[in-house]
């Protein structure tokens, strides 16, 4: 009986690297996202790399009314049911300043959409008494910064949600991992100035696989971001508010 992985936001480069690792382990994959032709290409790729099965499923974080139907189709097979959330969007803060209505979408993509989906999925994991949920947050959620505090706020909310979900699912035999990547070399960061210590999507995917194996609770990836964020979180507010890091 193979592992089943539901991957939300599967068109992300990090998700693609993670899906391929699952495929190499022979998992059954459900690739969720908005770009169906691309998801189908990825599904074919994953099958050739060893996935027992790979399907492309239309999913939009801003259309929660469709979630139940999606879960009904992907949670059919028996086996250990797992999910990994890579959905997120990061409009430039300046765009949001110009059009505050963008806040709603940003929060839906990175927090409330995925949270509603997981809320519907959780009973299924409890029923099976097993499974892992990976939620990809961001170091940006650890402290609000002038450059991207709406995105940061969404990620902070998601992290708090995941913490509670972990608290709940532990009782039912399932597990939740919160992931806080630093800078990753994807289209989200491509060509943006000020990037440093940029990790490859493969490196992040490797650390996710390890975290699943070792049942980690909260990981920073690459690991040194834990210490960078420790420092940043501990800068006194009267100093921090004047910084633009």
């Amino acid at each position: 009986m193979s592992d089943i992985w539901i991957i939300l936001g599967a068109t992300s480069a990090i998700a693609r690297a993670f899906a391929r690792k699952c495929a190499e382990n022979g998992a059954e994959l459900h690739l969720l996202g908005r770009d169906l032709p691309e998801l189908k290409r990825l599904a074919a790729d994953c099958k050739l790399r060893g996935a027992a099965e790979a399907t492309a499923v239309a999913f939009d974080a801003r259309k929660p009314e469709k979630f139940e139907g999606i879960i009904d189709t992907v949670a059919l097979a028996s086996g250990t049911l797992n999910a990994a959330v890579f959905v997120g969007s990061m409009p430039e803060q300046a765009e949001i300043d110009a059009d505050p209505s963008l806040i709603d979408g940003t929060i839906q993509d990175s927090f409330t959409g995925p949270a509603r989906f997981l809320q519907l999925l959780a009973p299924e994991l409890e029923k099976r008494g097993s499974g892992t949920i990976i939620g990809v947050g961001s170091v940006a959620g650890d402290r609000g910064r002038v450059g991207n505090y709406v995105y940061g706020a969404a990620k902070a909310g998601f992290a708090t949600y995941l913490s509670g979900l972990r608290n709940r699912l532990t009782r039912g035999g399932a597990h939740v991992i919160t992931v806080k990547p630093g800078f990753v070399d994807t289209s989200m960061t491509w060509g943006i100035e000020g990037m440093f210590l940029v990790a490859s999507p493969e490196d992040v995917a490797n650390s996710l696989m390890k975290a699943v194996e070792k049942k980690k609770n909260v990981i920073y990836t690459p690991f040194f971001w834990r210490y960078i964020m420790l420092i940043i979180r501990n800068i006194p507010e009267f100093i921090f508010k004047k910084l633009s890091i």
Binding site: T11, A13, R16, D35, P37, E38, R41, T186, S187, W190, G191, I192
Partner: peptide, 27 residues
């Protein structure tokens, strides 16, 4: 988004300042 970067061949003796696109998907 196009990224400005120094582009080099494997030998590294020749280089150019370039604008690079790196699509993640076919479209």
């Amino acid at each position: 988004r196009w990224k400005k970067d120094e582009l080099k061949g494997w030998g590294g003796a020749l280089s150019i300042e370039a604008d690079l696109a790196r699509p993640e998907r076919l479209s």
